[in-house]
Structures are given as C-alpha cells and as structure tokens.
Simulated assay, not measured.
Amino acid sequence: MKRIEPDLIILDIHLPKFDGIYYLRLIRKKYNLPIIILSARSEESEQIRGIELGADDYITKPFSMGILFAKINAIFRRKIQSSILEEINIGNLVL
C-alpha cells in the first residue's frame, strides 16, 4: 500500500488464506481511500456488512464492466468535487 499508493481498491471477498473482509479491516485502520467490494455473496446481510465495515460500494458477481466503471467514475467524481487540488493516479494516468 505504501509503495503503490492506490487511489481506489477493488477487493474480492473470496481470497486465499484470509478473506477480503479481513483485508478491508486492515486497510481501514490505516487508510481512507475508496474501496469497492466484489463478491459472489449477494445476500443483503453480506452487502450491509461490507458497507458497515468500511467499503464504499459492493458489487455482486456476475457484473458488467459498465457497472464497475460507472461506480468507479462516481467515486472519483465525488473525490474530485471534495478536493479539486488533489491528483488522482490511475496507472500511468494522472487526473
């Protein structure tokens, strides 16, 4: 996290060793950056849990790339509106 300094994290819940909720908690302890959860778990209780633990959005699988990009754009739009002077880095692209 320190080396890459991401502007947004897309976090899957089903990960080897530890689940995404574990990583969500770790990230939230130190960082305040947008996190979108991707999960095959579509139960309302799971979605609420993810949001309450700090995710900014929760997308269930299967999903379309259009939905994912629209949600990412909405997060960046809010981020830009709240801090016009802040740079946003997406790979090699700087906004």
Rank of each mutant, 00 (worst) to 15 (best):
D57N: 09
D56K: 09
N32A: 07
I13P: 06
Q81D: 14
I72V: 15
R78T: 10
L85G: 13
I84K: 09
E46F: 08
N73T: 15
S42N: 06
I36L: 08
T60E: 01
L38I: 04
E43P: 02
F69M: 15
I13Y: 04
G91S: 03
K79M: 14
G20L: 00
I88K: 03
Y22V: 05
L11G: 03
G91R: 01
I51R: 05
I10Y: 00
E44Y: 13
M1N: 03
I67D: 08
D19E: 04
I59S: 04
G20E: 02
K29C: 06
E87Y: 08
Y23R: 04
D56R: 10
K30N: 10
A74F: 12
S39D: 05
P34Y: 01
L85K: 12
R49M: 11
Q81R: 12
L26N: 07
S42M: 01
I51K: 07
L24H: 02
E46S: 12
I51S: 05
Q81M: 11
E87N: 14
E5N: 10
Y23E: 04
L68T: 05
R3P: 02
E44F: 10
A55G: 04
K71I: 09
I90L: 06
Y58L: 02
I4D: 02
N73F: 12
G50D: 00
E87D: 13
H14E: 11
D7G: 10
S82R: 14
S39W: 02
I59A: 01
I72N: 08
I84D: 10
R3S: 12
G50A: 06
L24D: 02
G50W: 01
L8N: 04
S82P: 04
K29S: 07
I21V: 06
K79R: 13
I80G: 12
I35K: 01
G20A: 03
I80D: 13
L95V: 13
N32L: 06
S39K: 02
K79E: 14
F63W: 01
N73W: 11
F69P: 06
K17Y: 08
L53F: 08
S83F: 11
E5I: 00
E87V: 10
L93W: 06
L11K: 03
L26I: 08
S82A: 15
R77H: 08
A74D: 14
G66N: 15
S83R: 13
R25W: 00
Y31Q: 09
F76H: 07
M1Q: 02
D12H: 00
V94S: 15
D57M: 04
E46K: 08
L93A: 11
V94E: 14
Q81Y: 07
K61D: 05
A74Y: 11
P34L: 03
L95T: 13
E5K: 11
L38A: 03
E5C: 08
D7R: 09
G50R: 03
S82M: 15
R28H: 03
E5R: 10
N92Q: 07
L15W: 01
R3H: 08
L8K: 03
Y23L: 07
G91T: 01
I35M: 02
K2L: 15
E86D: 14
F63E: 00
I27Y: 02
Q47N: 07
G20K: 00
V94G: 13
K2G: 12
A74P: 10
D56W: 09
P16M: 03
I72K: 09
A55T: 00
V94T: 15
H14V: 12
K71D: 05
A70K: 13
I80M: 14
K2F: 12
L11T: 05
I27G: 00
D12A: 00
A70P: 09
L11A: 05
D57G: 07
